[in-house]
């Protein structure tokens, strides 16, 4: 899948600008970003539901804007906020959707693995939000797609259902299905994605593996310790690679780039302070994400 310089406007407003990325076959590619960042516009353009104002997209060599019929046979889409006929039952929906495809997945197994086995006769309107969500995922996969777009995959799911859904995404990857995952959840992105694009203000702010994003963040490592004497925090802030220093419940917390911990220890020795309970841990994707998205929100007046 290749997206090349995607541009999409709604009237005057530019929703997506110059978005480009490539996703390899069998890769799980995450798209992260705050609300209104252009994530959904991007995936809807890839699904052929919207036609961009510039750029080009190819999915398995198919142009979604010109040849949607061909695309629909290889692409499975789970859309955000898309409902079904209120009175259709789970079994009826899956039977119907199976009839759309030449070679559908035997859907009973799919339904069981999504924990919907007991809901076969339940009408869509009577399902809980999480069950509706899981049915929507089942419908996206029933056509045996080679590319799956999952928008807000685990929204509204309880932790156990979320694990089941994650397991299915891992199996899709193992089967060589390319997955485009739009998510709010850092944990989900970190758990599932081979690579992640962070989109904000309609542009890609970063594109890397989860580890790469964390490494590049201002808080790639978090160093915490308690000090034997008063510490000059200003001095620590000036150390190379340090992005933030704060005192938190008696402990000093220093966030910074990869080498920041060593610089901090140096400064502490100069201050003749001995750190105790010293811990240096990896930062999380959260900080990487916040770094990349908060700077851009400041640029734009609210």
């Amino acid at each position: 899948m290749r997206v090349d310089g995607l541009l999409k406007r709604y009237g005057e407003k530019v929703a997506v600008r110059d978005v480009s990325f490539e996703v390899g076959e069998g890769e799980v590619f995450g798209i992260l970003g705050p609300n209104g960042a252009g994530k959904t516009t991007t995936v809807e353009s890839i699904a052929g539901l919207r036609v961009g104002d510039g750029g080009a997209i190819r999915v398995l060599g198919i142009d979604p804007w010109a040849d949607r019929p061909a695309l629909t046979r290889v692409l499975g889409v789970q859309l955000q906020e898309s409902r079904l006929q209120p009175k259709i039952t789970v079994d009826e929906a899956l039977t119907l959707w199976s009839s759309f495809y030449d070679d559908p997945v035997p859907w009973r197994g799919l339904v069981d693995r999504l924990g919907l086995g007991a809901q076969g006769g339940t009408r869509f309107a009577d399902l809980s939000g999480g069950q509706q969500q899981r049915l929507s995922i089942a419908l996206a996969l029933v056509g045996r797609p080679r590319v799956a777009i999952l928008d807000e995959l685990s929204t509204g799911l309880d932790p156990q259902a979320r694990r089941q859904v994650w397991e299915i995404v891992r199996e899709l990857r193992a089967d060589g299905v390319t997955v485009l995952l739009v998510t709010h959840s850092m944990e989900e992105a970190q758990q599932l994605c081979d690579r992640i694009a962070i989109i904000d203000g309609g542009r890609i702010r970063a594109l890397d593996t989860p580890e790469g994003l964390i490494r590049g963040a201002t808080a790639a490592t978090v160093t915490t310790f308690t000090a034997s004497a008063a510490v000059d925090l200003e001095d620590l802030r000036a150390a190379a690679g340090v992005s933030s220093v704060r005192a938190d419940a008696g402990r000093i917390v220093v966030e910074g780039a990869d080498g920041a911990a060593l610089a901090v220890l140096d400064r502490l020795r100069q201050q003749r302070v001995t750190p105790s309970g010293l811990r240096i841990v990896d930062g999380s994707l959260d900080t990487a994400y916040l770094d990349l998205t908060s700077t851009t929100s400041e640029e734009q007046p609210a």
Binding site: A47, G48, L49, R68, P69, T72, R73, L75, G76, V77, L79, E81, S82, R83, L84, Q85, P86, W97, F100, Y101, L139, G143
Partner: peptide
């Protein structure tokens, strides 16, 4: 409710 939209993503 997006039923028509959802159907647009299928071969039908």
């Amino acid at each position: 409710h997006g039923v028509l939209r959802r159907l647009r993503t299928t071969p039908v």
